[in-house]
Design a protein around this nucleic acid. Sequence first.
DNA 1: TCATGTTTTCGTACATGTATTAAAAGTACC
DNA 2: GGTACTTTTAATACATGTACGAAAACATGA
Lengths: 231, 231
Amino acid sequence: MSPVKSPHGRTGRPPRTSRAEVLAAARDIIDRDGWQKLTIRRLAAEIGVGTMTVYHHIRDREDLLVQLVNDIADQAPRPDLPDEPRDRIVVAAEAIHDGLAAHPWATEIITTDGFLDRLGESALTMVETIVAGAVDCGCTPEQAVDVFRGIWYYTVGEIVVRANSDQLQAEMERTADREIFFNNLDASQQPHLAAIGDQWPALAARDTYRPTLHALVDGLLAQATPATSDG
Amino acid sequence: MSPVKSPHGRTGRPPRTSRAEVLAAARDIIDRDGWQKLTIRRLAAEIGVGTMTVYHHIRDREDLLVQLVNDIADQAPRPDLPDEPRDRIVVAAEAIHDGLAAHPWATEIITTDGFLDRLGESALTMVETIVAGAVDCGCTPEQAVDVFRGIWYYTVGEIVVRANSDQLQAEMERTADREIFFNNLDASQQPHLAAIGDQWPALAARDTYRPTLHALVDGLLAQATPATSDG
DNA sequence: TCATGTTTTCGTACATGTATTAAAAGTACC
DNA sequence: GGTACTTTTAATACATGTACGAAAACATGA
């Protein structure tokens, strides 16, 4: 016998704060002081509620970040898709990459969570685009999933590594901790690395996501459709 | 005027514990109860010293994990390298991958740190092998670095994503939280994903590191050396 | 022996994420 | 208005990483 059925609206105590307000405040803090400064206590203080109140709107800190990412994904512009299926794959992958890379704190989510399970609409559309493009290139559904997974792994790795490299580099510039890189390597053991030497940081700082993505996609498609040449 | 020069041995208070002992105890805890249970306090208690004593041997928790990884890398078997430079690249990449993938807690290091800066001897040898292989395939040093970076990003991403997927899957099996995957997708919006549907987890669970690595390497080498055919 | 310098150890304190739990603040029905 | 129920709020407690700084333990030179 449910004594209260909330026949018209809702019952119980009305909320003082909303999920949207929590997300907005979180984004404010991140925009203002960086995502390292986003703590639950500070977030609650910003809104003017008790710390644990925030936990009524989010499962935990990581859930908050997931919701923020999905928010951003939903607001990100959908790219224009070219005609060639291969190019559609590339464009969709770049869209995912750029959307994530623009927000360094996204790293924490990608790495802490399954993430794919919690993707929102917009992000799912990009996944669909990649899988569809692979199928249009002659892949079986299984192969198409593999194509996506390869792209996903590469993209995640690029963002994770580069996010941390950037952070490390910023710290080094602050603490004058430079010149430790590859200084202890032995020219007889690692001749090529020794030859590159000091140039490594400069080379590694270049953004090579796109060309490598092209290489990966071409390699995957060539592998999946070894003898397909219609026309 | 250095009044104490430690002419024969060492000076100062003799250590009760050593770095090696700390690392060994840490590995014990990880092997026994999993890496999630490795806390500094517990580690110190295990050895029988105060918590902060541990910090005299490690810079911070993450530094401890880096040292553990390098330990493992140093003990990992060096793979036999084939004659073909392309195959040497693949074998070296697989060695790095397998070495890291065998220890899920390695994820935390890869993602939290610059990591490449702190590689030990053995790991550096694998980097050298990849760069050398790329050069032997006709790449310029710059291109060789790009080849390595592409492989590194892909490898890191694969390990990061899979480590967390495994963890998630284990939790789902425990909490019977199944069947949430891709259930909320719209067949008209994402036809291919909808067609795959329930099969996605099974497809995503397959280990496809190697074939995708081959595709990536082939794609990268083809891109770097478009018209190289000596002989 | 004693002062001095050096290295190691560890007690204390603080910020943080989060579980527990009970109080507060509403709504609906009588 | 009063009572029962639902939802929100927040105080409290605990585990963790780690900064700070003082104390301990030793070697050497006077």
